[in-house]
Design a protein around this nucleic acid. Sequence first.
DNA 1: CTCCTTGCACTATTTGTTATAGTACAATTA
DNA 2: TAATTGTACTATAACAAATAGTGCAAGGAG
Lengths: 120, 120
Amino acid sequence: MNIAIDYQSRVPIYEQIVLEIEKQVALNILKPNEQIPAIRELAVNLGINPNTVKKAYDTLEQRKVIISKSTKGTFITDNVDEVKRIMVDKIIDDIKKNIQELENIGINKEDIIKKLKVSE
Amino acid sequence: MNIAIDYQSRVPIYEQIVLEIEKQVALNILKPNEQIPAIRELAVNLGINPNTVKKAYDTLEQRKVIISKSTKGTFITDNVDEVKRIMVDKIIDDIKKNIQELENIGINKEDIIKKLKVSE
DNA sequence: CTCCTTGCACTATTTGTTATAGTACAATTA
DNA sequence: TAATTGTACTATAACAAATAGTGCAAGGAG
């Protein structure tokens, strides 16, 4: 499990872990039903406190990205498609909001497309 | 000056003020050289501490959105276009990043456009 | 000149969240 | 039996945000 923690970031460590694991699920780096590191193990790997990892795992379980099985370990959900769908919807929504903001400022769709095409 | 503060948000109050004023500049609600409320006045209006408003104004001045004139008051910059340009560039950059993320997940440009067109 | 308002500067304290430290339990596995 | 798993809990530390409070210098209005 490869996770880079940015200690300068305003995003809490536990949330960085959440976002990174969600991302790796969406990118098929983490597969359905795959086991992920034990709380204590990941804590050691990242050099942080187990409670912080626990908080991340709790959040991920609430979002149905992972499933914790007592004494067995923690596993990626078997319904990875749903996780992806939610992520994609969120990103699409973000883009729509950004486009709306640009239009509010007075930039029309053609100009937006023009600006996007440069260096894309 | 109409600013709504969300106390539930993780974004600090001073930053909410910064973002809202920048937005109102971009939307031409706040005009070039226009005077904005005194620190103490806005603090009373929003029901917050003057130091919090001061921090917001300091940030805005650093970003060249406003100019503070001792004993005179605080004013919107005369170069509003530059503020707009920076905001637009930032939003465009956000959109690009989001598109890249979608492509990484495996969604091609045509699908992205299709998803964007629904309800837009 | 006096009073009020302005931005500015500073210290101290409070508050809430994040992160750490530490301990313990139940259940499964080797 | 020993080790590992997730779970649960309390206490503490660390940090940023926000508040509280005081005071200064300078300009404008009366």
